[in-house]
Each structure stands twice: as C-alpha cells, then as structure tokens.
Simulated scan of single mutants.
Amino acid sequence: MSRKKNTPSAPPMHFNITARILHWLMAAMILAMIFIGLGMMTSLTWRPWLLNLHVPLGIAILLLVIIRFINRLSFSVPKMPASISKFQSKAAGTLHWLLYGMMLALPLTGWAQLSAGGFPVKLFPGVNLPPILPQSPFLFALLHDAHRVMAWLLFFMVVGHLSAALLHAWVYRDGLFSSITWGRKMINKSEEPSARAAE
C-alpha cells in the first residue's frame, strides 16, 4: 500500500471571502472619502456637513484596515500569474503594502490633526473619540499639511492601482483581477501544461 507524501498545499485561486469583502467595501469607502475631501476643499457651505461624514468614515476605514491587515497575514494568497516578471511582482507587492500604510496613516493623521487643533473628533452625536495629541498650533499646521499631501498621494496610488487592475482584467486576462472577485479565475495559457501535468 503506497503512502501519499506530504506536499505543501497549492496556493488558493482566490483571496479568502473576508479579504474580498473588505477589499471592495474599503474601495467604495476610500473613493467616497476622496470625493468628500474634494468637496470640503471647494465648498465652505457644505464643509461642516461633509466633515461630519469624513471623520466617522475615516475611523471606520482605520478599523477595517487593521482587520484586513490581520486577515492578510493569517491566510495564504493567490500566486502572481506566470506572465508577470519578478520585478513587476515585487513592485506590486511594494505598492500593496504602501496602500496599507497610507490607509493607516491618513485616519491617524486626521485624528491627530483635530486633537492638536482642539476640535472634537465626532463619531456620532454625543459620541466623541478622545484626543491623541495635546493642543498645539504648530502640530495642527504640520499635520494639516501632512494629511493633505498624503490624501493626494493616496489618490494617485488608487488611480494607478485601478488602472493596473483594469489592464489585467480587460487586456491581459491573466486571472489576477478575478482572484479578488467572485468570478471564475482564468488559467494563463503558459501555465496550462504544468496544471495538466499536476492532475
């Protein structure tokens, strides 16, 4: 009677369900935050109302990115398609972690900015978060500029990420985009012989 050798399990075809839900939920929230931020800069009339949306949405993103980070470290992820070079794979991985860092840094700098300015960090009517910095006009100005610069950086990173995703979905069709959706993942033609040999 032959025994099966212990072989490492193959990488999954898709990200796990929690990762996929968080990815698309946070994508919608971040896009909303970008438009809310632009509205806050261009309209004094709508600014107070938009700020009341901006703060709780930012804190929600902060909590969700922590959950997403823990989930990312807890589960294996799909392999990159064989058509992607090592350089491209490393660049994509670097951008991936930079996005995590930016999603953490932006809400924290916003929270710190309001704290330094002596403003309440309102989640809901009657529910405020505690300040995380003492009042300081210098820190407020510094954090205000940092928050604005990082918001623009995140905007360009999101545009780049979205452009690359659509390129893989519509042009390359290599299964990279479908790994974060609920659709069937396509097998790259260059991977078919090895996939068949493994059956």
Rank of each mutant, 00 (worst) to 15 (best):
E192Q: 10
S9R: 15
F124T: 13
A141T: 10
T45F: 02
L153Q: 06
S89D: 04
I187M: 07
P48F: 02
A112T: 09
K86Y: 12
N6P: 00
L133Q: 07
R3S: 14
D174L: 07
D174W: 03
M157C: 15
S163D: 00
K189E: 15
R196I: 03
F156E: 02
W49E: 15
T45K: 04
R184L: 13
P12Y: 00
H144F: 08
M150L: 15
M33W: 08
L53W: 15
L154Y: 01
R68I: 01
L25G: 01
A112K: 01
L166D: 00
R196M: 07
L38E: 02
A82P: 11
Q88H: 09
N16A: 03
G175L: 06
M150S: 13
V149Q: 14
A27M: 07
I21W: 14
A116D: 05
L44W: 08
L22Y: 10
G58D: 02
L98G: 13
S9Y: 12
V55R: 06
W170D: 05
K185V: 15
A105N: 05
S43V: 07
A151Q: 03
P8H: 14
I132T: 10
W170K: 13
A92E: 09
L123F: 02
N52L: 13
P120T: 06
L133Y: 08
G58S: 10
L95T: 13
A19V: 05
R68V: 05
L38A: 06
M103C: 12
S115V: 05
A60F: 04
R68P: 00
K86N: 14
V55M: 15
N71E: 00
S179Q: 03
F140W: 12
A197R: 11
A164P: 00
L167S: 10
L167Y: 10
S89H: 11
S89N: 11
G58P: 03
E191H: 00
V65C: 06
S89P: 01
Q88L: 14
P56I: 08
R68L: 02
S85R: 07
M1H: 13
L114T: 06
L167V: 07
